[in-house]
Design a protein around this nucleic acid. Structure first.
Lengths: 153, 153
DNA sequence: CTAGCTGCAAAGCGTTTGCACGATG
DNA sequence: CATCGTGCAAACGCTTTGCAGCTAG
């Protein structure tokens, strides 16, 4: 059974109907590597199905999110980003200075979920974390800028 | 030196001016336990300073965030939430079913930051994580609902 | 003094909602 | 054929921006 079949089955079993729009949105997200915003999803779907409405995209993304077939995260405060939940989960390190995005293997967070479950009985969704910070380049750049400021100021 | 003094000093040193609005917004966030939305901040500030504008609040929150005196997170996709960055850091477990909020001690994530720094040279901001999932109550409730569905359906 | 900050008002933008039509199972 | 999903359009709500006047340093 392919991943796509799995999603379709999940959709069906949960009592949702299978519409062309939903299938397309599913496959767009599946083929995508990494995140997509709602409008990006919409643009891709439009290529093969020109009359999809933004509201349909949002409604579908909501359904898929509730079924935990995709993840949503809103890191910028602007557009939310959606991503297919793969088998080989991973997370992201995002540099808040230059925006560089580094993939972080799931093993860094694997134990966290079980610890929290044991101690709090809380079943954490460790599907896709976005961890902010400073990348190597920006750390040294900022350090250089600071020492310059002290010398000249 | 009190925490408040520290913030004011940081503000000054970074070349920002000290206006009554900024001082008030700072102290509101400092006294608050936990998160506040921008409009909540505004309401509190208005009590002692009735003519603050929302735009001023947003601009100030932006400044404080850049100086890393407060954290911003947008978990709902709706209003962003802002929080004073304490010394004793902590994180939150948020139930995606009932919204229950549990405080998670920083030690669960303390090692993560150093691991990432060692392996990637990435200086992660492990200031305030929001971890979603299901609380104990909702886990069992959902399990009950599922078995019912299988029996009746 | 003068760069930076504020209030005001209006626009911006992602997202949601009401409704009638259409499609799915 | 009953229900659920869709497109359309309009509304919504948080946030941002342009601008003229004010103020901290």
């Amino acid at each position: 059974m392919s991943c796509e079949d799995h999603s379709i089955q999940t959709l069906r079993e949960s009592g949702h109907r299978l519409t062309p729009q939903r299938v397309l949105i599913l496959s767009v997200l599946r083929r995508a590597e990494g995140h997509m915003t709602a409008s990006e999803v919409r643009d891709h779907v439009k290529e093969s199905y020109p009359y999809v409405d933004a509201s349909t995209v949002y409604r579908t993304l909501g359904v898929l999110k509730n079924l935990r077939l995709i993840s949503e995260n809103n890191i910028t405060g602007g557009e939310s980003e959606y991503e297919w939940l793969h088998q080989n989960r991973h997370h992201h390190l995002i540099c808040r200075e230059c925006g560089e995005l580094t993939r972080l293997d799931h093993r860094y967070l694997a134990s966290l979920g079980t610890e929290i479950l044991e101690d709090y009985g809380f079943k954490a969704d460790i599907d896709h974390f976005a961890i902010f910070g400073l990348c190597t380049g920006c750390v040294s750049e900022l350090a250089a800028r600071d020492s310059e400021r002290i010398l000249t100021g």
